[in-house]
Design a protein around this nucleic acid. Structure first.
Lengths: 231, 231
DNA sequence: GTGGCTCAGTGGCTCAGCCACTAGACATCG
DNA sequence: CGATGTCTAGTGGCTGAGCCACTGAGCCAC
């Protein structure tokens, strides 16, 4: 078991505000009602509202100016990738685009890893791959799979690739449950992934690139089918 | 002139806490002192401290659990790319890695743009490119250059590339001033960039990829030289 | 052992209020 | 009449005191 998150008032309020923003109920560039008014409308204290604001500002959806007001930012134009979880939760259309990017970047990472990986990192990758096979249940296999990708990102020797990988994972982590299909057969998942690890071990950049592309295309297809069927 | 940001108490507190975390003064995995104690230590109200916490939690540096405490997350392992601005501010070593990733992804974006750009987007890219030449002063040219890259990301038809581009720009935006060197000659900057736009216009994916790689490598070199000289 | 109870310590949230800032209306002056 | 300074309503920033809700550890009865 693992500690499951609890929905606090601020969480709920944040979600509500975010929906209202992403839905366009608060148009971008426009000012929100004053805090005193808005907090009364939602039936919470101004302090609580401000906590929710703090998060949305940090996320790049809002912008507050002392003495003036709180404005909705043009997030589609200026926002960063950390908005993705919110955007996907609001509209799963984004998933297709996230997967496409993940494929492009995953291939890039694999090829960089092939160029840079140390022997220790190759050994670690093999261990992480083995863990996928031994995982019990789709959910576990999925997590083990993510660890392999984190390992590949580390093997590039560039920490920014690790952060980027995390960002993309975080993007669809909230929907994780709906995306276990590719991992229900742990053995198959492991075998799909193996060519990538082996190409990296052989320091063959081109092979790593195409193996990763093939792997990501395959899992992507399964996931999207699953989602399509789920509707 | 433009409105310059003001340093509020929460801003200062957030910066201080972030430094203490990134410096390792608060070790990852460890619990921070209780809010009541910490707020007294910093001479602020608990409410104010919580606002700063709210941001750091959102940024992925902290994790709070009701009834237990606030723990420092293993950000290097689990954090997302939105941490980059903070990491770079704390230690510019990250810049080299950010540039490398930007080069990889920039090339990827250029080649996707070549595959996907519509005629309208190509026309827009040419306009944005012209704006680089006409920009007055290095800072303006730099901003115009960023707009071209945003345009390229849009031209991929994949909104996630736009967000990713923004994330990478945001990463070194705080240091923007130190990185104007490549843009001091607006004409030259425009000419360096032109092959990328032309390759995209010609829908030549390979040419776009290598032109972008060459362009990014060139500007990267100039920027890193500048930084190296600045020390 | 096992399960339930209590309690100290922690973060979540509220409330009422004052401070600081901004923009626009207005008065003043040259 | 135009430029300049002043006032003021409305906004977000921040405070301090306080209560509520949750967690974990120690204790107890079974």
């Amino acid at each position: 078991m693992e500690a499951l998150p609890r929905e606090t008032v601020v969480d709920a309020l944040e979600g509500r505000l975010r929906e209202d923003i992403l839905n366009g109920r608060h148009k971008k560039g426009s000012y929100l009602p004053p805090e005193r008014e808005l907090s009364e409308g939602y039936g919470v204290t101004r302090t609580t509202l401000k906590h929710a604001f703090e998060r949305l500002v940090q996320a790049g959806l809002l912008e507050t100016r002392h003495g003036v007001g709180t404005r909705v930012r043009d997030y589609a134009r200026l926002g960063g990738a950390d908005l993705l979880p919110a955007l996907i939760r609001h509209s799963p259309d984004w998933l297709r685009e996230v997967f496409e990017v993940r494929r492009g970047i995953g291939s890039l990472i694999a090829s960089r890893a092939a160029a840079k990986a140390t022997v220790a990192q190759v050994a670690e990758l093999r261990e992480l791959l083995a863990a996928v096979r031994e995982a019990e249940g789709g959910a576990r296999a999925q997590l083990a799979d993510i660890e392999v990708h984190r390992g590949l990102a580390r093997a590039t020797g560039n920490r920014v690739y690790v952060l980027l990988t995390n960002t993309l994972f975080n993007a669809y982590l909230p929907l994780r449950g709906a995306l276990v299909a590719p991992f229900s057969d742990a053995d198959a998942a492991c075998e799909r992934l193996r060519p990538v690890v082996e190409a990296v071990a052989a320091h063959d950049e081109r092979a790593a690139h195409s193996a990763a592309d093939a792997y990501l295309a395959a899992t992507e297809r399964i996931m999207l089918d699953e989602l399509g069927a789920g509707r």
